[in-house]
Nucleic acid binder design. Structure first.
Length: 371
RNA sequence: GGGGAGGUACCAAAGUGGCCAAAUGGAGCGGACUGUAGAUCCGUUGGCUGAACGCCUUCGAAGGUUCGAAUCCUUCCCUCCCCA
């Protein structure tokens, strides 16, 4: 089956366009708003698939670009698809590689057919265009595939941004043409940088192509946060109400709250996992750097209110010791805690929307988190 | 007792007349991280000052040579290795 999205509830509050939904795929039922942990190379670094599941996640993100370069999508196809290859039987969303092609390594040539680039691994030359991006993702067998898009950097001139948006639209059409896997749904990606009119035009064109879901790309790439929120204000509401809206690459708890408030349903970000590995741990009072010397003798958990395995069993002093000593358990535990925090945040968000108190929840959270 | 090597910043270790407040590691301290080239990266670590500039005190100790010494000389203290 392709995905099914059902809008359950729209907030009936002032200052909030938050919404609740149910997203069904071949592999799982997902309540939205949802946060998807990132497992670029077919693994969420440092944590077992069964652990991801027990933390409450039923969809993760992986990446066509990386898996194409290594180990190759043909192999994964032979292995029975990415789900089986990586031992994860819930949902997977794959990014097309558009973002990676433009943000990594060396680009040799871009034209309307696609991009010739050099592998960051060995410098070898490769070509990916909309057709290839579809082939790769169909081989991977993800539940949701993304169109191959061109992500303009920040800052970028209006002209550059416009070219990228136009090409993204052209490629979106090509992707549709080459996508024919019934069990996989293909989402469109809206580009247009920080230019509202370009965004709107691009969004409208993509809406006409009737994708089952829409992503906002090219945000959170370095622009000031208020600017990102402005764009969300402008674009989120013109996207079809009955379809999931996905803000790619976001992330930070405060950004998620602001985006949910603007009607976004799906998020993915490396932040909780990467920060977890690097000793930056989320708490409801903000991030802490667990390696700070002030935690050396702190025999309390990371977050008194947290019910995660890490907080139930270990002290800050112990965790700090593991990080300082470079023990491999350190990034593992940091990842578990941060992912638990994110999932818990999403649960609280959904509950607050359900009870028509999302806006006050958001304010209270931000008050604690940002001070 | 004989022969040899050596003492440099928190640790290890370069430097052997001026470009040295002193390379480089490690350790410490701080920061960053947003569709993952990341168990990574950046900054900082003698004192004073607000990262500059500057000034002050440093290369085992004390004296000396020199315009100038971590670097040369003298004496002393200490450590290590080999042979008896």
């Amino acid at each position: 089956m392709s995905i099914k999205f059902k809008l359950i509830k729209e907030a009936k509050e002032l200052n909030s366009n938050a919404r609740l939904g149910i997203l069904k795929t071949e592999h799982s039922v997902i309540e939205t708003p949802v946060f998807m942990p990132v497992g670029t190379q077919g693994t969420i670094k440092g944590i077992l698939p069964k652990e991801i599941e027990s933390l409450g996640f039923s969809i993760i993100l992986s990446n066509a670009y990386h898996l194409f370069l290594r180990p190759g999508h043909e192999l994964i196809s032979k292995a029975g698809g990415l789900h089986r290859f990586m031992g994860w039987d819930k949902s997977i969303l794959t990014d097309s590689g558009g973002f990676q092609v433009f943000s990594l390594g060396k680009i040799n040539k871009i034209n309307d057919e696609g991009v010739t680039f050099q592998s960051y691994i060995d410098g070898s030359r490769h070509f990916i265009g909309p057709k290839q991006a579809m082939e790769i993702q169909m081989d991977l067998g993800s539940d949701i595939a993304m169109v191959f898009d061109q992500c303009a950097p920040y800052p970028a001139t209006r002209r550059e941004t416009e070219i990228a948006a136009k090409r993204t639209f052209q490629w979106a059409k090509e992707c549709q043409k080459h996508h024919f896997k019934k069990t996989q749904s293909l989402f469109g990606i809206v580009q247009g940088g920080i230019y509202p009119d370009l965004r709107k035009e691009n969004a409208q064109q993509l809406i006409d192509l009737n994708f089952p879901g829409y992503a906002l790309g090219g945000l959170s790439v370095g622009e000031p946060k208020p600017l990102m929120y402005e764009i969300l204000d402008e674009i989120s509401m013109i996207l079809p109400k009955q379809k999931p809206k996905y803000l790619m690459g976001v992330g930070a708890p405060e950004s998620i709250l602001e985006a949910v408030s603007r009607g976004i349903d799906m998020f993915d970000c490396v932040l909780p996992t990467r920060n977890g590995r690097n000793g930056s741990l989320f708490t409801f009072k903000g991030k802490i750097s667990i390696t700070n010397s002030k935690f050396k003798k702190d025999l309390t958990p990371i977050d008194e209110k947290c019910q995660c395995y890490v907080c139930n069993n270990f002290t800050k002093a112990y965790l700090r010791h593991l990080y300082i000593a470079n023990e491999m358990l350190a990034p593992i535990l940091g990842t578990i805690h941060n992912l638990y925090f994110m999932n818990n945040l999403m649960i609280e968000i959904r509950f607050a929307i359900k009870e028509n108190r999302f806006d006050s929840y958001k304010k209270k959270f931000l008050e604690n988190y940002c001070n």
